[in-house]
Write a protein that binds this DNA or RNA. Sequence first.
DNA 1: CGAATGGCGTTTGTATACAATAAGCTGCCT
DNA 2: AGGCAGCTTATTGTATACAAACGCCATTCG
Lengths: 224, 224
Amino acid sequence: MSRASDRAYNHIRSMILSGELQPGSQIREEALAELCGVSRTPVRDSLRRLETEMFVRRNESQRSFVTNWSLDDLKDAFELRAMLEAHAAKRAALRITRDQLARMRDHNGKLKQAIDASRPDVPRFIDSNRLFHATILEAAASERLANMLMQVTEQPVILRTARQYDLENLRRSHHEHDELLIAFDNRDGDWAAAVMTAHIRRAFHAYAEAHSTDTEIRKANLAA
Amino acid sequence: MSRASDRAYNHIRSMILSGELQPGSQIREEALAELCGVSRTPVRDSLRRLETEMFVRRNESQRSFVTNWSLDDLKDAFELRAMLEAHAAKRAALRITRDQLARMRDHNGKLKQAIDASRPDVPRFIDSNRLFHATILEAAASERLANMLMQVTEQPVILRTARQYDLENLRRSHHEHDELLIAFDNRDGDWAAAVMTAHIRRAFHAYAEAHSTDTEIRKANLAA
DNA sequence: CGAATGGCGTTTGTATACAATAAGCTGCCT
DNA sequence: AGGCAGCTTATTGTATACAAACGCCATTCG
């Protein structure tokens, strides 16, 4: 994508994710265009794209609004993600090359280093984690599957999820990755799929728990 | 969507599906705009949309081309579709209402009538089939899932698939739908998912067989 | 003779003006 | 007072002009 379009897309997306654009609020193309310093044309492109990614929705008369996520929506997205990633893992187990496997080991090694540092290095954890999963997707060798997973893997939500992991959860991730590697080594697709399902679903529950704590804290603050 | 955009989208899509725009050939926005009788703006929108649906792909320098499907690509799409529809069936089995169930029965009844006519009425079969599956999706109550399934359910491929079904395959579809209804009646999600998986995978193999026959006929014609 | 480079033509990207549509308001009628 | 009609304004849709990027071809230089 080109410069203005990219800028608009990233800008709008980050405004949504940061809460600068409130969930449920209306979005006007011209206002965004000014904020992004571009014309309406690339803004329109971005909105269409964000719409397919479900960050934005349009009402029956074509007005755009920031999507208001419910916990159920998130659960839905995670459920689909778990299914798709498990499928990817299964495919990957049957196709993965020595080189890809080596790279995955490397990523998981770096991930462990990030945890084992005196203070856990969360950004590094996140980056290694991303590369680890990206390699699986590469080994799965299905462009369609990759596209779909992108749609359901809201990087931002993931990111917030990881930030909220406690050390225990980070360690679990590392061990699950290790088990995945063994399953891959054995070319056992069903095993890989099962480990992956567990991996994603645990992540969701860790997120949901942190989220509900958040909500309770917020409620408490409001009550005070 | 609005008039010009709609027109462009449908026109381009049907030109791709009919083969009027050959797989692999480059697409120029202005040429399409003329063909559709609109300006480039709605054409661009349509191309972006068709790109996410994988009917069109763009090279690294933003030129657009009609996607050239391989049998493997189709297999991929069907595999994902089978997985997603099975998931939908499972969710539907746990949520479906009396009314939705009644409508499904009705659609499947009409489908049977279309088969039982003196000569099978394929368009009516296709329509009832579509409504049957749409009702499952409605009962599954996941907008995300519905969106994803749309992406992987190339109506046209489906349509050609159904056209190539022999009567035996149409009857099988009817019976599989019947079994799905029983699974739904029993609120047995796993049963429903299993039947659905079988249903979609059978459809794929029926298609692949017909397709390979086609290919052989074409080859024979070329050789002659 | 081959490879690099520069310019030209083609194609896409962006901005902007104008058209169409829908929402909201105002005032009138009941 | 309530609701509807018609107008006004806000917002999106479409067309078009211009800018930028890219590929292709020819020409030149090693």
